[in-house]
Design a protein around this nucleic acid. Structure first.
Length: 563
RNA sequence: GAGCGCGUAGCUCAGUCGGUAGAGCAUCUGACUUUUAAUCAGAGGGUCAUGGGUUCGAAUCCCAUCGCGCUCACCA
């Protein structure tokens, strides 16, 4: 690097330009005006479905901004992160992925917290999904406070803001109406009364608004009966965009990010807050995730990658890295990106201890681990420390043709005898991920070939050779014996090989290529003597016998059919 | 119609306040106690979509154009 003196931590912080710092500075600028001593971050959540990969992304990213803010302000300003569940929303449609659909269907239109729980484990469907959300967030160790919309409405925490909005109804309508077509504009109301008899969230026009009494008058379209309902105390809910605005206003939300699809909604809600005399929160719009074909990932389509799928093949930290990187660029979120993201994460972790403050603050692992990334786990071989990459493990699993983590650990231990799952727990997890990735993605792409006549004879010779070896024969002994078997077979002789003589010909690559293609279903493979030593002599003989019977290719064909 | 993202090596993409283009894979070459790779070293390969502008200097900032794609325009 250059001869310039490394920056001190405060200097490095002042110039840190990773996006969480940029976001944090927007909040700092905001509170310099107000002089407030507390900052509220919010993430929203619609509890009609289960938490998903986008939920994780939003909370992870907001947490990164929050942490950057805490460091920049040296914790002089208190911060809170509110995970707000819009559980008073009316149920529009019965989800496909639940039991007891009739039970839920009977409550269509009611607030989610009034819909019976189809799983029978919670007081309501909303409560059930809220619990799922919290368990989900807790499993990643996020720090947050949970908030239930129903609870806030019914407890009266929103009453003042609701009355305030009622008093400014004209201003709200002026903002909202131009966004609708005529038919909708004629019936629109930001206040949705809960029907006092049916409990349904009503979408009806307001016939009269009484700001003084804090009520609205509306009419049941079916019976024609008129009702006067207080906007307070949970008797009314707000339409989505005014609801968002009212929440920002009532709670004093300082920061909330949202997806690109909500850009217009953010603007609109922001204008409503201003009409109420408040200030919309800081925030930015992140890009949406695309599937492998560049289509938007949506829950209903079921395309793209679920968070469960990611966590089957890789760690939560690697997913955090994916969320950290370029939040404003549309990225394809598909299986292919997993190995690369995992390896990127490992390299960032590896580089961190060697970096100066300035670089560390721009290193994603600093943001992922809230400033305290763990030390990288390395293997020591010939006094050199190396980080085992995910790609390398995938390679290993493929060549060892094994879904057994113990086999991979066998290879690792041969390379660095002192390693174990006990002293390298994160590497052990990585091994587990690699094995699963192999099982689901690598194995299906194998192609086994049946041996021809010459190859059949050659493999039989290998069988005889293996039978003559002791069970604990070393990799070198096996390797040498393999060469000797091939040396006698004209097809595999190579007279141009280094040190080859007519009496003792060399052995060509084709010999090993054949073993890989027939026995492992791969074009490339491991040093075969080592493979046999690890895999076991008896097991290798069984493998060869299966190949000779044609079972390997047959079983693989069946396996592929079953996929 | 409104808003946004992307366009960099054959492929997938990095490129951190502007300073002589990078990685992985792929290809090729070589080394490593019998041509095998969980190895190492090296090579080739890019008018950074196009055209302008700012600047001593632009992949990077600004404007325009082209191409690809996404989102929003009745619900949340």
């Amino acid at each position: 690097m250059s001869a310039a003196a490394p920056l001190s931590l405060p200097e490095a912080l002042a110039s840190a330009n990773a996006w969480p710092f940029e976001e944090a500075r927007k909040i700092i600028k905001r509170i310099e005006v107000t002089g407030q001593k507390e900052v509220l971050f919010e993430t929203g959540y619609g509890p009609s479905g289960l938490p998903h990969i986008g939920t994780f992304g939003e909370v992870a990213r907001t947490t990164m901004v929050r942490h950057a803010f805490r460091i920049l302000t040296e914790d002089r300003i208190k911060t809170r992160l509110l995970a707000f569940s819009d559980d008073m929303d009316g149920l529009r449609k019965v989800p496909d992925n639940i039991p007891n659909k009739e039970l839920v269907a009977s409550a269509l239109g009611k607030p989610l917290t009034q819909v019976p729980d189809p799983f029978g484990t919670h007081p309501s469907f909303g409560a059930h999904n809220n619990a799922r959300l919290r368990a989900f967030l807790d499993s990643f160790g996020f720090e947050y406070e949970f908030a239930s919309s129903t609870e806030y409405y019914t407890s009266g925490r929103f009453d003042a803001a609701l009355l305030h909005m009622l008093a400014h109804l004209d201003a709200v309508m002026t903002i909202m109406l131009p966004t609708f077509r005529e038919e909708r504009a004629a019936t629109y109301s930001p206040f949705l009364p809960i029907h006092p008899r049916t409990g349904i969230v009503m979408q009806v026009p307001i016939e009269k608004a009484d700001a003084g009494a804090g009520t609205i008058v509306w009419r049941d379209p079916e019976t024609g009966e008129a009702f006067e309902t207080p906007v307070t105390g949970g008797h009314c809910k707000l339409q989505w965009k005014p609801d968002w605005a009212m929440r920002w206003y009532a709670l004093g939300v300082d920061y909330e990010m949202a997806g690109k699809d909500l850009i217009d909604s953010v603007k609109l809600s922001g204008r409503i807050v201003q009409a109420l005399g408040g200030k919309p929160p800081e925030g930015f719009n992140y890009e949406l995730f695309l599937d492998e074909k560049g289509q938007k990932i949506s829950k209903s389509k079921g395309n793209g990658l679920t968070i469960e799928e990611w966590l089957t093949y890789a760690s939560p930290e690697s997913l955090s890295l994916f969320m950290y990187q370029k939040p404003t660029a549309a990225k394809r979120l598909y299986f292919d990106v997993i190995p690369r993201t995992v390896d990127d994460y490992l390299s960032f972790l590896d580089a961190y201890p060697r970096q100066a403050f300035k670089e560390q603050l721009g290193n994603p692992v600093w943001h992922i681990h809230s400033g305290e990334p763990p030390a990288p786990e390395t293997l020591t071989h010939d006094n050199q420390a190396t980080t085992i990459s995910f790609g390398m493990l995938l390679n290993l699993a493929a060549v060892a043709n094994s879904e057994d983590p113990a086999v991979l650990w066998g290879f690792l231990r041969r390379y660095a005898p002192n390693v174990s799952p006990q002293n390298h727990p994160r590497l052990d997890k990585l091994v587990g991920y690699a094995v699963r990735y192999f099982r689901d993605f690598v194995r299906p792409s194998k192609t086994y070939r049946d041996p021809d006549a010459v190859e059949t004879e050659a493999l039989k010779s290998v069988l005889v050779m293996l039978e003559g070896l002791p069970q604990d024969a070393s990799a070198e002994v096996i390797q040498t014996a393999l060469y000797d078997v091939a040396r006698a077979i004209p097809r595999y002789q190579d007279l141009k090989a280094k040190g080859a003589t007519p009496e003792r010909p060399g052995v060509s690559n084709d010999w090993f290529s054949m073993l890989y293609a027939v026995l492992l279903g791969e074009a490339r493979g491991p040093r075969f003597g080592s493979f046999v030593a690890l895999y076991g002599i008896a097991e290798t003989r069984a493998l060869i016998e299966k190949a000779l019977r044609g079972d390997l290719s047959r079983e693989h064909a069946l396996f592929l059919q079953s996929q």
